[in-house]
Amino acid sequence: MLMAPLIAIKNLSKSFATQAGNVDVLHDINLAIEDGESIAIVGPSGSGKSTLLSIIGLLETFQAGSFQLRDHAVDELTDRQKRIIRNQHIGWIFQNFNLLPDLTAWENVALPLKFNQSINRQHYFSLALEALERVGLIDKAKSFPTQLSGGQQQRVAIARALVTKPGLLLADEPTGNLDSESSKTIVDLLTQLAQEGSAVIVVTHDDSVARRCSRRLTLNSGRLVDEN
């Protein structure tokens, strides 16, 4: 039996209510993403890239169309179901790293495991260390975020995103605050994760990052204008 695509979006539209009236941010988006694909979403500021990413990441809702995440119709999911999917099947990477400052690197990485009741507490440490090892930061496990460089912080953030072995990784401008060398390390890691079977979606302005992805989606004024 054929497995359903990881993401199947059909005629999806999204608008925000403002004082001036409704503002349409996404129009008629149609998109299908399979496991192991790496996709770059590009486009000018305000084109709807981040909104699309947040809908895919189950953080925002949409007004029209359909969004099928593997076997789940997203608009039928409860908040609790969305939370569990976010926790177990989606990994997030942000431009500002978003590490909790009062937790050490390994504690930050172990955080998603804490919210997953099916994982034994005794495994937190080993799973987190394993993730840190993958990003080359095993020796920084007990460091606090403020003691790490920008590139190291982003690698800890990636370790946190992959610690639950998610099928979908979402990255919002992951190299926006990094130098070129750190950026290259991060993109290498993301590419490697895609090769291992996870779908990786990256919102970026950086052409060198987009070029490393298997597909590029261009958004303009909320419409998908180009795909290659």
Partner: peptide, 16 residues
């Protein structure tokens, strides 16, 4: 706020 938004994104329950 970003800290709590991050927790929401990684699936932390409301009680946590």
């Amino acid at each position: 706020k970003w800290e709590f938004a991050t927790l929401v994104a990684i699936g932390a329950p409301d009680s946590w």
